[in-house]
């Protein structure tokens, strides 16, 4: 019962702050609301027995990526864009597309929700204390993807440094 109520609260928080993210004028406020969303999603992870992922969510997303984003927001001037028009020229087209998409998704979910009632639902304790399991899986079964991901990160890092670098004098 507690889990359900918490889940509802966290979901509402996540959705509400997500709406705030895309409607705020000031990107810093957007970023702050996004942090709220990320926290709520992290809470959902906890309810879903994924404490390691919760920690990763906080450390990487909140402590890393969002700091980076806020850093960049402060680096580039926000005053100018804050005064300008907020929505792009094709916002109407975009919105329509998304609404159609949302309707499709909703319909599909509505029709297919029965299919989600899975035959074999895992016991509640199956994923308890899964940090070690994740580690084992990551470094044994998923060795190659981990390496690929690390190369991706390396490339991204080098690329970011190169792009943000000043022109050579």
């Amino acid at each position: 019962m507690v889990a359900e109520v918490t889940f509802f609260i966290l979901s509402a928080l996540a959705l509400g702050s997500a709406v705030m993210v895309i409607t705020r004028r000031n990107p810093v406020h957007s970023a702050l609301w996004l942090i709220v969303t990320l926290f709520s999603v992290g809470g959902v992870f906890l309810i879903l027995r994924a404490p390691f992922l919760f920690a990763v969510q906080i450390i990487l997303y909140v402590g890393g990526i969002m700091v980076l984003i806020i850093f960049v927001i402060m680096l580039v001037s926000v005053d100018v864009s804050g005064r300008q028009q907020q929505f792009s020229r094709q916002w109407l087209v975009g919105l329509t597309t998304v609404l159609i998409l949302a309707a499709e998704l909703g319909y599909a979910l509505y029709r297919g929700s029965k299919g989600f009632l899975l035959a074999r639902s895992a016991p509640a304790a199956a994923l308890e204390n899964n940090t070690q399991a994740i580690g084992t899986a990551l470094y044994q079964n998923y060795m190659l993807p981990v390496e690929i991901a690390s190369i991706l990160l390396l490339v991204a890092m080098v690329g970011a440094v190169l792009m943000a670098k000043r022109k050579m004098e």
Binding site: F52, A55, V56, I58, I59, V62, G63, G64, V67
Partner: peptide, 8 residues
């Protein structure tokens, strides 16, 4: 991990 997360 909790420590790293919160202190960040």
């Amino acid at each position: 991990l909790f420590i790293l997360a919160v202190s960040s």
